[in-house]
Design a protein around this nucleic acid. Structure first.
Lengths: 137, 137
DNA sequence: ATACTTGCAAATGATTTGCCAGTGT
DNA sequence: ACACTGGCAAATCATTTGCAAGTAT
């Protein structure tokens, strides 16, 4: 059996912050709670609070490995908890983005390694193309 | 035998522009010649001339299908002749971006279709990962 | 001649930086 | 207490838009 996603609790995340010397402040709790509650990756604006501080905090959390950011197309970057950032695909026809299932990601990752030797997690830029639904007109 | 890249001459490109009702101006010749001479995708700034006009012209050329743009990471977008934009891979360790060979692209494209049904040309966002060289430390 | 284009200035959107008052440890 | 943070203003970077003057057809 393979556990693919590290689903860490709020408490564990806060401990990681303290372990890295980051203080647990109201603003940081806001972004962490925002990301914990989110169904999808969020923009800095969607996380509320002062944008400059939000960006700084997202950066801080990214630097200690508990947050990542993705670019789904043009427009602002979007942030997710690292444990939830498996890999993504975006349809250029309907505009929807969806996470790749662990199995799908693994399959593609192997194919890419075979084809060109790259180890590609697809968690920074999504795979862009036409989704099955849009493919058949 | 399979011809995978449409290598169109300067004259053919200019004709396409006229065929789409776009006038052939000095500024447009500058961006076209810049892209024809380029080894790699270029930024608007690298193409010289007035940036606003350059962006407008790149947009115009993109709208008639003879130019495309790629995002290799953070920073400004980069533009290529559509016929030269096959698909790309970027190493997040050494920072280099390289085109995928037609064979490699086809292999990966099939694997992606098999895995999740997407038809993905990888010509807007590159495949990001660790290249073979950086993989072995 | 007339519509399409240019080049400059100014606007917009995303993200970063400087700074000082406020706060977590 | 003391160093780390927050919030506000202002700066920066990429890209877009408005507009009067210039030019390809």
């Amino acid at each position: 059996m393979l556990v693919h996603t590290t689903a860490r609790s709020r408490a564990a995340l806060l401990n990681t912050m303290r372990a890295h010397g980051l203080r647990v402040s109201t603003a940081r709790r806001r972004v962490l709670d925002g990301l914990l509650a989110a169904e999808h990756p969020l923009t800095a604006a969607e996380l509320g609070g002062d944008q400059a501080a939000t960006y700084r905090n997202l950066q801080a959390l990214e630097s200690i490995g508990i947050v990542r950011h993705v670019h789904f197309g043009h427009g602002p970057g979007r942030y997710v908890l690292a444990g939830r950032s498996g890999g993504w695909a975006t349809c250029e026809a309907c505009g929807r983005s969806r996470p790749l299932t662990p199995g799908t990601l693994e399959q593609i990752r192997c194919a890419v390694r075979d084809a060109c030797g790259f180890d590609a997690p697809f968690n920074h830029f999504p795979i862009v193309g036409r989704c099955p639904d849009c493919e058949l007109r």
